[in-house]
Simulated assay, not measured.
Amino acid sequence: MNRSPVVLSLAAAAALMLPAAAPVAAPRVNIAKFDTLPQPLPLPYHAGNAKAEIAAARARAIKAHKRLLIDLGGNWCLDCRLLAGVMDLPQMKPFVAKHFEVVTVDVGRFDQNLDIPESYGIKGRLAGVPAVLIVDPKPNRLVNAGRETALADARSLTPQALADWIAGWVG
């Protein structure tokens, strides 16, 4: 089989982004390209009390035996909106709801709510957004340390690759 170097490098990059083993298969996303996502793309980030929203979601996650998914980003960010669009797909929405309590946190232009990632051990400026924190709520521990900005260039992936990445963090 003859594979181009681009395909191999994309495959290698995807392998580095995923956790070691995906215990739960992602739903099949029937959209091959982002330009076929329902339009307009969601605007998921809003002003609010991020700490209170995270605390409430964490309590729900503990009670429901789910993980907490904290999505840090901004409505100005195309990659953030693409991720939100994939998570809103009819194939993905029930899957995400079954396995995660999701909180979106507006980081503004990297000048708001930066104490949230810091509270999970992420020091300094975020390397990009969306920054997705997967948290085990019982000990309140970041599960995907070092991979929180893996989706910051979401537009370079396929919708299915985003779905696979999310599924890889199901606890």
Rank of each mutant, 00 (worst) to 15 (best):
V7T: 08
M92I: 03
I122D: 03
A22W: 00
G48P: 02
D88A: 14
S119K: 13
D164V: 13
L133K: 08
S4M: 12
S156F: 15
R58W: 15
A131P: 12
L142F: 08
L18P: 00
N113K: 10
P90L: 09
A55S: 09
A152C: 05
R58H: 15
A14S: 12
Y45K: 00
A64G: 07
A161P: 00
A20C: 15
M92T: 02
A22Q: 01
Q91H: 06
P42C: 02
A150L: 01
A150I: 01
K98S: 15
D115T: 08
A47H: 05
A12P: 02
K98Y: 08
L82P: 02
A15V: 09
L133D: 03
G73K: 03
G74P: 06
C80D: 00
D164R: 11
P19D: 07
A84Q: 12
P90V: 00
F110D: 13
V96A: 14
A21Y: 01
A59W: 05
N49T: 02
K98Q: 15
Q112E: 10
A97F: 06
K66C: 03
N2Y: 07
E101A: 08
D79L: 06
R67W: 04
P23D: 10
A56K: 14
Y120F: 15
P40W: 10
R155D: 12
L133Y: 04
P94M: 05
N140K: 15
F34V: 02
P139R: 03
A13D: 15
P40S: 02
N140D: 14
A26T: 04
L10V: 04
D35N: 11
R125S: 12
L18W: 04
A12H: 15
R3H: 10
D111T: 10
S156I: 06
A14D: 09
N113D: 10
V129L: 13
G146E: 07
A13C: 10
A25R: 14
A127I: 03
P44K: 01
N144R: 08
G171P: 12
L78Q: 01
A12W: 15
D35F: 10
P90S: 05
I54H: 07
K93M: 07
L126I: 05
F100Q: 00
N49W: 04
Q112L: 12
C80H: 02
V170I: 05
R147G: 13
L69I: 11
Q39F: 15
A52K: 15
P19M: 13
E148F: 03
Y120R: 07
V29E: 02
K33L: 06
V107G: 07
P159F: 01
L37K: 06
L18I: 01
C80K: 04
A50W: 12
K123G: 05
K93T: 00
L68M: 12
A161T: 06
T149E: 15
K66S: 04
F95T: 05
V7R: 13
L142W: 11
Q160Y: 04
I62P: 14
P90T: 05
L10H: 15
M1T: 14
S4E: 14
N2R: 12
R60I: 05
P38N: 02
P5N: 09
G146L: 01
M92F: 04
A61R: 07
V7G: 01
G74E: 13
E118C: 12
P42D: 06
A163N: 00
M87W: 06
L89A: 13
I31A: 05
D35H: 11
Y45R: 00
R109G: 11
L37E: 00
I54P: 04
